[in-house]
Amino acid sequence: MLMRTDSFLYRAFHLYYDGFRSMTLGRTLWLIIGIKLFIMFAILKLFFFPNFLHQHAAKGGEAEFVATELTERMTNGETTE
């Protein structure tokens, strides 16, 4: 079924479609955004910023892990174990 050319969806689609096609400066900016997002998510997040709790605490055991961490960091405190 063909979409009516005066429908909202058709006009919204063409707003983006024509807009992206006619970009000049925008192409450069989108390229930069793409490179930036790639560096952030495919390199930095993947290799340099793991989720510490996911790595060190058992699933569902995050509260216990943090409780232990926060208890052991108490200064001059005697913990009862």
């Binding site: 989108w30 955004i33 930095l44 910023f49 943090v66």
Partner: peptide, 24 residues
Amino acid sequence: AMGVATGIILEFEFGTNWSNYSWF
């Protein structure tokens, strides 16, 4: 365009460097 998503890096740092804080 230059500024978009630069703030997300702060959230990466929360998860890696500041995990006790993030949970707390």
